[in-house]
């Protein structure tokens, strides 16, 4: 498949005392027509990376190709073909939704009408409303509409649902899905693992300015060695000095780690692992204060890779 974005050895150091190495050797390949997610905690370097790809920041080093073009040579042509939402933009309060879109539309040689863009993000009823009257979710959809009026083939969405309520998030997800179905290439950043998992065909997990894992959500979860997570804790402190080695030796357990007052196991087959855990408790004469199993998520992948949670801020 053709590559919409190709990044090699990208580095970005913000000057200052001390300088901040926001991106430290990052590689990316985004296939045309896919929805690609940069998933990582706050400060991982997602915004810096995406703004370099949008031609808004000059990287310190590295090689960036967008739609087969380069910012230093083809800036004007590239701007015509990409759509952007920044992490936070406040549009002008006293302009209506439609006026805002007509403004953005006027910058592009080609594209869709303001009215069509409004339809694409489901803001039809708000077309004549001033921006100041919009809810957070509606403003974010307006931002996406502004990214769409130029009829871009490549869309950059930086944290499109951060700070939104669950219903607004789902509405925005629907918008993103419909755009993907229309064949647009989408690069989005998020620190919500459920968002990345639900929306993205491919994900790069970013931490400290590097890609620490890359693949489809399924591939990434499978890399844990098991699809399931078993979490439990012993009831009395005395019996809780279980060595991780003992736990790892249990049948079907792929990995084990301490987690707060208890343990977290990655297991391939819960119906094999669970009886073994119960057996162990019985042998130790301990009760289980909690026990749960669930499907493994990208959060678990991140924890397995870094020992931290995505939202440990």
């Amino acid at each position: 498949m053709a590559s919409a974005i190709r990044v090699r050895e990208l580095r970005m150091t913000y000057p200052g005392r001390p300088p901040v190495e926001a991106v430290r050797g990052l590689d990316l390949d985004v296939a045309a027509g896919s929805c690609f997610g940069l998933l990582g905690p706050n400060g991982a370097g997602k915004t810096t990376t995406i703004e370099i790809l949008e031609g808004l920041l000059e990287p310190t080093a590295g090689d960036v190709e967008v739609l087969g073009m380069r910012w230093d040579r083809d800036a004007r042509r590239l701007r015509e073909r990409i759509g952007v939402t920044l992490q936070e933009t406040k549009f002008t309060d006293k302009l209506s939704v439609r006026e805002t879109l007509e403004l953005f539309r006027s910058f592009f040689a080609q594209g869709v009408s303001a009215q069509d863009a409004i339809g694409l993000v489901g803001l039809g009823e708000k077309s004549a409303s001033h921006v100041v009257t919009l809810s957070g979710g509606q403003r974010q959809r307006l931002a996406v509409a502004c990214a769409l009026v130029g009829g871009p083939e490549l869309l950059f969405l930086d944290e499109p649902t951060t700070g939104l309520d669950p219903q607004s998030r789902r509405q925005l997800w629907d918008v993103v899905r419909s755009l993907r179905e229309r064949g647009k290439t989408i690069l989005l950043t998020t620190h919500y693992m459920d968002e990345a998992e639900k929306l993205c065909d491919a994900i790069a997990i970013v931490d400290h300015g590097r890609v620490i894992a890359q693949g489809t959500p399924t591939e990434l979860i499978r890399s844990l060695g098991g699809d399931h997570v078993v979490e439990f804790a012993f009831g009395d402190g005395a019996a809780s000095e279980e060595s991780l080695a003992t736990l790892r030796a249990l049948p079907a357990v792929r990995s084990a780690r301490a987690d707060g007052d208890g343990y977290q196991l990655t297991v391939a087959e819960p119906h094999v692992a669970l009886p073994a855990v119960l057996e162990l408790a019985k042998a130790r004469g301990a009760t289980l204060s909690r026990l749960s199993t669930r499907h493994a998520s990208l959060e678990d992948v991140f924890v397995a890779l870094t020992g931290r949670h995505l939202r440990d801020e």
């Binding site: 808004l56 701007r79 952007v84 953005f104 130029g150």
Partner: peptide, 13 residues
């Protein structure tokens, strides 16, 4: 301060 300038700079304006 509203980042609108940056947003405009991201268009072919």
């Amino acid at each position: 301060s509203r980042r609108l300038l940056k947003r405009l700079a991201a268009t072919p304006m």
